[in-house]
Design a protein around this nucleic acid. Structure first.
Ligand code: NAD
Ligand code: NAD
Lengths: 231, 231
DNA sequence: ACGCGTTCGTGAACGCATTCACAAAGTCGA
DNA sequence: TCGACTTTGTGAATGCGTTCACGAACGCGT
């Protein structure tokens, strides 16, 4: 409850460099999880070294990343765990609860809908939507599946800003367009397709096949150099 | 069946720079998918520009990436789609079929087991493993769930090199250790934990909560600057 | 045969991210 | 109070990835 004051006295008052590098942003959730573990284990403070090993990175990276949030460490001691959790949560916008709509309640969609990780991380599933008439009305994870024609209404009434796409690849762009039109400004795509979104809409993807193929590449490397047996 | 000859006459024979940058490797699967679409649409050749727009990147990146595989383009024309598919598949090691063991057949594990994307991308699920005795013996996606004590045997007899972890976070490191001990050299982790693996084992992760939190950060940015209302 | 238009392949420039390394700033025991 | 010790915060150095920009190579029409 004092970080605004801290910000006010931050160095170089004129310089507005509140930009946190994307690579740092991607690590903040990892730190957050590591800190939860440390807090449960009874740690009150943690050094950059300690947090680094818990998060699987090196300590210089931790310090640089955290420095983008402000100067919340104490030299000779480290960081106070609770305070750091608070600041990271704040930077990530996790102090408020974001609402999510999940489109495509099939094989994967069912697993996602039933996944406890949404709620525990502060995300609320505001609605489940599917195009298959035989799925509409079905109860999944305590929610009723709605028709795709109700998407816009779900987004509006549920104050939804994040859309999750778990439809087949062929339908993903169409669904994406509908989500954007309905007012969603962040999309997480599980379908193996490249999606186009207008400026102002953030898009991230989770791609199982891609991950496996990257592993395949490294497996291939490991199993003796394959195409270098010439001459 | 002629790329070894091609490699042999590659420029700077003494310099052994067959290393493909990790960032390029991560895009090759995307190109592969884009090329499949182009092939279906009847394209025989494609320019770097055409492939770039299909893959959602810019053309300089495409050319640079493909140049790491060799010189398979024709100036003034572009790349032959079929040939490129072949070379990328080869570079990724997709000419052979990799076997996968899936550990943790719960909510998410069921979805993964039933996912057609494994087979169509050339990956074979050699076994499903779970620690819950009440799950062992269950039929899932045409396979019988085996006990965790059988993991080593499944890996050995199935010639498994890739392990997928879909257990709760608390069990992930233990499962990871078992996989490594059994001889698995690549691991894809769905549990929200940092895993430790020895050198020589590749580890990748898919982290839903992390993705959502990154989106949350950007949502937060968009909805007016939040913590800058001081003074 | 030849020139024109197209597109690749790649060196060079640039920018972002990581790592190094150390002065500054704090704690803590005596 | 003070000095030894710990750890942060950050400039500088380095490394990696992206983008630029253009010469070289090729197809094609004439
Ligand atoms: N199952 C997995 O483990 C897994 C893993 C990785 C990626 N994926 C990807 O996730 C997506 C979903 O996979 P799945 O196994 O759940 O498939 P699925 O076929 O079981 O489910 C797809 C659902 O989307 C619905 N749908 C289709 N078109 C729609 C539209 N226009 N609007 C709204 N809903 C629509 C269908 O009715 C169906 O319920 C696919 O793109 C798949 O490649 C799945
Ligand atoms: N469900 C989702 O959509 C989703 C999404 C993202 C991430 N995840 C993560 O994936 C993991 C699995 O999620 P879930 O929803 O399927 O959970 P779940 O509880 O439904 O399934 C976990 C399974 O793992 C088995 N298991 C537990 N300990 C084991 C061990 N030592 N060895 C082998 N098997 C063991 C359990 O018996 C169970 O069948 C979790 O870490 C979760 O955070 C799930």
């Amino acid at each position: 409850m004092s970080e605004q004051g801290e910000f006010a006295v931050s160095p170089s008052i004129g310089g507005r460099h509140r930009e946190i590098p994307e690579a740092s942003v991607a690590r903040l959730p990892v730190y957050l999880r590591a800190l939860s573990g440390l807090a449960e284990a009874g740690h009150v403070t943690v050094s950059s070294e300690g947090l680094a090993s818990a998060a699987g990175v090196n300590s210089a990276k931790v310090r640089k990343d955290l420095s983008h949030l402000g100067s919340y460490g104490t030299r000779g001691v480290g960081y106070e765990v609770d305070e750091l959790v608070h600041h990271i949560s704040n930077a990530l916008g996790l102090t408020q609860r974001w609402s999510v709509v999940l489109v495509g309640v099939g094989n994967l969609g069912h697993a996602l809908a039933g996944y406890g990780g949404f709620a525990t991380r502060g995300f609320r599933i505001a609605g489940l939507v599917d195009a298959d008439p035989s799925r509409v009305g079905e109860q999944v994870a305590g929610l009723t599946v709605r028709g795709i024609d109700e998407l816009s209404e779900v987004v509006r009434t549920g104050d939804v800003s994040i859309g999750v796409i778990a439809t087949p690849a062929g339908a993903a762009q169409e669904v994406c367009d509908l989500l954007v039109e309905a007012g969603v400004t962040s999309i997480l795509n599980f379908a193996p397709t490249v999606l186009q979104v207008p400026d102002g809409v953030d898009l991230r993807k989770v791609d199982l096949a891609l991950e496996l193929q990257i592993l395949s590449f490294h497996e291939n490397r490991k199993s003796g150099v394959p195409a270098a047996m010439s001459s």
